[in-house]
Simulated assay, not measured.
Amino acid sequence: MNLETLAARLEALESRAAIESLISAYANAFDRLDPDLLRTIWHADAVLDLPGFGEGAGPEGIVAMAHNSWRKMPHMHHWMANPLIRIEGDVATATVAADCLFHDIEKGPVQVSGLYHDCFERRDGQWLFTKRRFELHFLTPLENWKPIAGSETFGGI
């Protein structure tokens, strides 16, 4: 194997790791109600589109949209799975399955499942989201659901 091939393989692995970290940071930012972390994963012209939940443009618009979501759903837990990532130079796309448990202040505990459609770009050597759109598969109220162990701060349940 020559050095060019090895360098290309290393770049592909580093890009994939950076994109997977962005996907994880998104879930952690929403679950921990962390606007500072959420702000760091978007390019200035990025868009987050969560049909039925809100839309935001640019890091500050996305954080503002998140604050609205956090008021309505003060507890969130995202599981991100099966990232199918395609990288072509400095542009990448991905689909990511999501299963989420939310405590909605009006509906109570709900399970939300769907698929994220993502776009990323590497600018000035840094991968960040340019677009993230959620495709809702289902939202299911979890009637009579109560945790029997865990944090007492779990959304006031």
Rank of each mutant, 00 (worst) to 15 (best):
W70K: 04
E55V: 08
D90K: 09
M65P: 03
G114W: 03
Y116K: 14
H137C: 10
I148P: 07
A81Q: 10
Y26G: 02
L84E: 05
L101Y: 03
G108T: 01
F134M: 10
I62F: 04
A97P: 02
D31V: 14
K146L: 07
H43R: 12
G108M: 03
A57I: 04
G52V: 04
V96K: 02
F134T: 11
A8W: 08
W145R: 10
N2W: 12
G108Y: 06
P109H: 08
Y116P: 13
A94G: 05
G89K: 11
L139Q: 08
L84S: 07
G52C: 02
A12S: 15
Y116E: 08
L84M: 11
A25L: 15
N144H: 14
H75C: 08
K107T: 02
A17T: 15
I85E: 11
N2Q: 13
I87G: 09
K146T: 12
I85A: 03
G114K: 01
A46H: 10
V112R: 00
R122H: 14
V91M: 04
F120Q: 01
E55R: 11
E88W: 08
T93P: 00
A18K: 06
V110E: 06
A44H: 09
I105E: 03
A57L: 05
A92R: 01
R132S: 05
E55T: 09
L101P: 00
D99Y: 02
K131G: 05
R9S: 12
A92H: 12
H117S: 08
I41N: 06
P83E: 10
H43A: 04
R71D: 08
T130K: 04
H75L: 10
L38M: 01
E60D: 15
L139Y: 02
A97K: 05
Q126L: 00
A81D: 03
P59G: 10
L38C: 00
P74V: 11
T93A: 10
I148W: 14
V47I: 06
W127N: 06
A7R: 09
E11N: 05
E20S: 02
K107E: 11
D90C: 08
D124A: 12
A29D: 01
T140R: 14
M76C: 10
A97L: 01
I19R: 03
W145L: 14
P141L: 08
L139F: 05
R32F: 07
L22P: 01
Y26P: 01
A18G: 00
A57D: 04
L38N: 00
P51D: 09
H137S: 15
G56M: 07
S69V: 14
L13I: 09
G61W: 02
D118E: 12
V96D: 02
